[in-house]
C-alpha cells in the first residue's frame, strides 16, 4: 500500500487539476515531487510554479518540504481580482 496525499486546489489551479485529488507519493517525496506529478497531468500548471504557494496540513511551506502519508497539500495560486 503506497503512501498518498490529499490535494486541495484553489482558483486557477483548481480549474486545471480539479478541486480535490488523491495523489500517490513515493517514500521521501517532497512538495515539489507532488507538484511535478500534477504538472505531468495538466501541463498548463507549469506556468504557475513560480507564483503558487503550497500549504501542508494547514501551514504554508516551501517546495522542498517533505510529505508524509495522509498529509493534506493545499495549492494556493495568487488571486488578484477585486
Amino acid at each position: 500500500m503506497s503512501a498518498r496525499v490529499r490535494v486541495v486546489a484553489f482558483a486557477r489551479v483548481a480549474d486545471l487539476v480539479g478541486r480535490e485529488a488523491e495523489l500517490p507519493i513515493a517514500a521521501g517525496a517532497r512538495v515539489r515531487d507532488a507538484w511535478e506529478c500534477l504538472v505531468a497531468r495538466a501541463p498548463a500548471l507549469g506556468a504557475l510554479a513560480a507564483s503558487t504557494r503550497t500549504a501542508r496540513n494547514g501551514r504554508v511551506v516551501d517546495f522542498d518540504e517533505p510529505l508524509a502519508d495522509g498529509d493534506e497539500l493545499a495549492l494556493l495560486p495568487p488571486v488578484g481580482g477585486g
Partner: peptide, 27 residues
C-alpha cells in the same frame, strides 16, 4: 481578492507577516 468562485482574505502587517511573506512578488 476574488476569482470565479474563490476568495482570499487576510490581514497583513499590524505585527504580523505581509503580502510578500506569502507571495514574494507578482506572478
Amino acid at each position: 481578492s476574488i476569482f470565479r468562485f474563490d476568495g482570499q482574505v487576510s490581514v497583513f502587517g499590524a505585527g504580523g507577516p505581509c503580502y510578500r511573506c506569502l507571495y514574494p512578488s507578482a506572478p
